[in-house]
């Protein structure tokens, strides 16, 4: 293990130290995927890899929003409920009220963004801890879902059917669903925002030290409201993709998805206290969770509880390896004095 770390550290093309967790995660992801390919037939095909994106498109989008929030040092527990709520609204709007799909989707995105912004406002203006604010948001959104309907509503809408049933044809007979394409576009946009816009840099600054950011004359409060709004938007978009994926809205959809999203972000190397991490890491984190699930579904012989245990074990193995490889010697302040 140390040797791997040493190689990483000493190679002439040493990447920026802060990128190391991302590279380690990528390496381990590829390793896990190859192990899957060796163990199971039909695993190592491009389509299985693409399916990771197809089956997890909504989680990728949700994890994007979560990354923004966690980078500022906050947390958003409401994402799962907002995904469910968005799905419900899509289903009700298109199938019960017979409204045009684009209009419904626009409305859903607005609701999600507004919901996030409201939570952000409560966190910023009244200094309520993010955990508790978004927990209340989680209760609220889920409660509204249940109030709207206690049962699943299926979506019967031309637009949704068309988008869900068609996909982008790739060379080699592979395909990528439009949901996955949307997710990838969202990733690209988010990376750009974080790296090359003031909003993105303010997110990192607030995460590094909110007090400093404020004293440096950065709009710390506004940035915090913005990240929760972004997270709300991403959850709503994730909800639309989820509705596309399942062609239904259900008040019990996406229960616990907030934990998946947080896990993905943290596995991707972002630190929960904020200020450090990369969006691409979160995407890798989602793929890691996806690969684990895929491996277990290929295995197919496990009972439900063994599946859970296996997820835990694989997760542990992954994170432990990641830590051991990525762990740098605790060198503090070796730079100029």
């Amino acid at each position: 293990m140390t040797t791997a770390a040493d190689v990483l550290r000493r190679s002439p093309v040493t990447p920026n130290r802060r990128h190391i967790p991302v590279f380690v995660t990528l390496g381990l992801l590829l390793l896990t995927f190859s192990i899957g390919s060796v163990r199971y037939e039909n695993f190592g095909t491009p389509q299985v890899f693409l399916d990771l994106f197809i089956d997890n498109a909504f989680l990728i989008v949700v994890a994007i929003g979560m990354t923004f929030v966690i980078l500022t040092g906050g947390i958003d527990l409401s994402v799962g409920s907002v995904v469910a709520l968005s799905g419900m609204l899509c289903a009700i709007g298109t199938s019960k009220l017979q409204l045009p799909a684009p209009l419904v989707i626009l409305f859903v995105l607005l609701v999600g963004t507004g919901f996030g912004a409201a939570m952000g406002y409560m966190i910023t203006a009244f200094q309520v801890q993010p955990f508790i604010t978004t927990l209340a948001g989680m209760f609220l959104a889920r409660g509204v879902c249940l109030t709207l309907s206690e049962n699943q509503i299926s979506i019967e809408n031309g637009f949704f059917d068309a988008v869900a049933l068609n996909s982008l044809r790739l060379p080699g007979g592979n395909r990528l669903s439009w949901g996955a394409v949307t997710a990838l576009i969202a990733v690209a946009v988010a990376i750009y925002v974080l790296q090359w816009t003031r909003l993105g840099r303010n997110v990192y600054a607030v995460g590094g030290s909110e007090q400093s950011a404020m004293l440096m004359g950065l709009p710390a409060g506004r940035t915090k409201i913005q990240v929760y709004a972004i997270s709300g938007f991403c959850s709503a978009l994730g909800g639309v993709l989820f509705a596309l994926y399942t062609l239904s809205g259900d008040p019990t959809h996406a229960v616990g998805m907030e934990l998946d999203a947080i896990a993905a972000v943290v596995i991707g190397g972002t630190v929960l206290t904020g200020g450090s991490g990369y969006l691409i890491g979160s995407v890798l984190g989602v793929l890691v969770l996806g690969v684990i699930k895929t491996i277990l579904s290929f295995d197919g012989t496990l009972s439900s509880w063994w599946t859970r245990i296996a997820i835990g074990v694989l997760l542990f193995g992954f994170i432990a390896l990641q830590r051991l490889i990525g762990a740098r010697r605790k060198s503090r302040r070796s730079a100029p004095s």
Binding site: R198, R201, N202, Y204, A205, G207, G208, S209, Q211, S212, A213, L215, M216, G217, L218, G275, S276
Partner: peptide, 18 residues
């Protein structure tokens, strides 16, 4: 000192008016 420890030296000088 009120700067952001997680950002680069250069960014600390220019953040907010990049």
């Amino acid at each position: 000192v009120n700067l952001c420890p997680n950002l680069s030296v250069a960014e600390n000088i220019f953040i907010g008016r990049e």
